[in-house]
């Protein structure tokens, strides 16, 4: 609800009208999401069950799926697995009972983001736009920009592997840098503990959350103004971390 400030600049009226799928068994939710997204120049198709969702995915090949995990005829995790089998389209999971385990499971299964009910429109729009932008980047085959700005002060140069804050060099250890690089690569998305550990340390280290916490604390100390009120290196308790570029 307070994330409105983080919404990136709108992609503008000239952007192509992209088609989104909302899969939720609650008709009022579907209507609200459809009205809200259509008013922001998206086209929306609806599905009320796993069967319908899979049918709509193959018929319309939507640019993004908003998926409720509690569908009447099956498990939302099945939808994630079936879609991931042939597509990298962004999937944002929407759930009312979002326990941390469910979030982690959905994210590790291949969902890109997670939204807990009840949510406001600004939050929804922000997540949708981030997902679409990242998806478009990957589709166009363009390499990640070599220089990424985090907020106003922090600049990460992926080519030279240097990080500066307010013009001063920030010295990072190789692991800290690697951690930051993974977060930058998935900027705005939640990266689960497991995903981070596997990408930084390797597949064998999936359980060592303690490591991760120590390095994240060091990273926050080096990059954040007030580490206890982080603007960018956000903690999603029990799930993982999220790098916010704005703010």
């Amino acid at each position: 609800m307070t994330d409105a400030a983080d919404v990136p600049p709108s992609s503008g009226a000239s952007a192509p009208r992209e088609r989104l799928l909302i899969a939720d068994d609650e008709r009022p939710i579907r209507r609200f999401v459809r009205l809200a997204l259509e008013s922001h120049r998206f086209r929306v198709v609806e599905a009320g069950s796993v069967r319908e969702a899979l049918a709509q995915v193959s018929t319309y090949a939507p640019a993004l799926v908003l998926l409720d995990l509690g569908l009447p005829d099956g498990d939302g995790f099945d939808v994630i697995a079936r879609v991931r089998a042939f597509s990298t389209m962004p999937i944002i999971v929407v759930s009312a009972t979002g326990s941390e385990e469910t979030k982690v499971r959905a994210l590790d299964a291949g969902a890109n983001d997670f939204l807990q009910k009840p949510f406001g429109l600004p939050e929804l729009l922000a997540r949708v736009r981030v997902a679409l932008r990242r998806s478009a980047q990957r589709a166009s085959g363009a390499a990640m920009p070599a220089v990424v700005r985090i907020g106003h002060a922090i600049i990460v140069d992926l080519a030279t592997r240097t990080v500066t804050k307010s013009g001063h060099d920030v010295h990072l250890t190789p692991i800290e840098y690697e951690l930051l690089r993974v977060l930058v690569k998935h900027a705005e998305y939640v990266v689960t503990h497991r995903q981070l550990l596997e990408q930084v340390w390797g597949a064998a280290h999936g359980e060592r959350v303690g490591y991760l916490r120590v390095y994240m604390t060091q990273l926050r100390a080096k990059l954040e103004d007030i580490p206890a009120q982080p603007k960018h290196l956000r903690t999603e308790l029990g799930v993982g971390y999220r790098l916010k570029l704005g703010g």
């Binding site: 007030i226 982080p230 308790l237």
Partner: peptide, 22 residues
């Protein structure tokens, strides 16, 4: 620090001060 950080993130507009050893 992480717990406090994730809590305070929800109170974006409010003036807050913190003293939390990392």
């Amino acid at each position: 620090e992480e717990i406090v950080g994730s809590v305070l993130a929800r109170f974006g507009g409010r003036a807050l001060t913190t003293t939390v050893p990392s």
